[in-house]
Design a protein around this nucleic acid. Structure first.
Length: 269
DNA sequence: AAATTAATCAACCGCCAGGCG
DNA sequence: ACGCCTGGCGGTTGATTAATT
């Protein structure tokens, strides 16, 4: 006798790196319909990937508002502080870093920051930077740090006040929304702007904030909760959702994206 | 210039929790 | 109450790239 799951047709899913074509299919599908149930996304989008893989690809790479490139000093500091408080709670740490994914933070920590911290602790052996796994055991200093970071929790409910984030003065260079997304198709980014996603990115020079217009966003139906679910399942895109719901515009909120260093080597920093 | 080593990052794996029938 | 399914998370692996010998 075979169990129910055994009777399910075995689907051999593709593995490994995603091709630009697969990215395009997934992106197009989610923009049009939202992800809904991930396990059905791949089939509906015409992909031979499992749901988890699609979800991961969307969250870590295709999702709007992702910031890529090197971590700023402020971000680095935040990660170090939060890691001291939270331990390896990468998703929680990432909540405090708009545009960064847990995977990105984790990789950055493992490849670079961990060594840096060890080095620092080595040179400053008396500094009690014991990693507390339990917030109940937090030192007063750590609790203070924790509280100072609290405003971002829960993530992105309402607009972020740039000036209040970690007390960091934001540089006056232009912020680029979806910059990475658009630059992913190196050769077709322009056509993407004009046709595919149907989005127009305008730089509001007065407010120094990006305005993302969905005027020509081709959606079969009005944005459903399902559609928004695709954007709303992350700290970053709660803001995205919020703005989308209120007139389809994103002001310079959580979805900002500094183009600190892109593939072309353009640097504003 | 070639070989080796180190660093980086995308993606997979396994576990867990919550929802649902 | 139970089992199944799904989504989310953290750990780990493997491929690629950069640096060094």
């Amino acid at each position: 006798m075979r169990c129910k799951t055994c009777e399910k047709p075995k689907v051999s899913y593709r593995k490994g790196l995603w091709s630009p074509d697969e990215d395009q299919k997934l992106r197009d599908y989610i923009l049009k319909h939202g992800h809904g149930c991930w396990s059905t996304v791949s089939a509906k989008a015409g992909l031979q990937r499992n749901g988890k893989s699609c979800r991961l690809r969307w969250i870590n790479y295709l999702r709007p508002g992702l910031k890529r490139g090197i971590f700023s000093a402020e971000e680095e500091e935040t990660v170090i502080k939060l890691h001291a408080i939270l331990g390896n709670k990468w998703s929680q740490i990432a909540m405090h870093l708009p545009g960064r994914t847990d995977n990105e933070v984790k990789n950055y920590w493992n490849s670079y920051l961990k060594k840096k911290v060890v080095k620092l602790e080595g040179s400053n052996s008396h500094a009690s930077t014991t990693k507390s796994q339990d917030s109940a055991n937090q030192s007063p200093e750590m609790r203070q740090i924790s509280e100072s970071l609290e405003p971002l929790e829960p993530p992105m409910q309402g607009s972020i006040d740039h000036d209040s984030f970690e007390g960091t003065q934001l540089p006056p260079f232009p912020k680029v929304l979806f910059a990475d997304w658009l630059s992913m198709d190196h050769t077709t980014s322009q056509s993407l702007l004009n046709s595919n996603a149907g989005m127009n990115c305008q730089l509001d020079s007065n407010s120094n904030a990006d305005v993302f217009q969905y005027g020509s966003f081709q959606v079969d139906d009005p944005p459903s909760s399902d559609f928004l679910h695709g954007f709303g399942d992350s700290s970053i895109c709660g803001e995205f959702q919020l703005q989308f719901e209120h007139g389809g515009q994103i002001l310079g909120g959580a979805c900002y994206n500094y183009l600190s260093m892109d593939d072309n080597g353009v640097s504003f920093t």
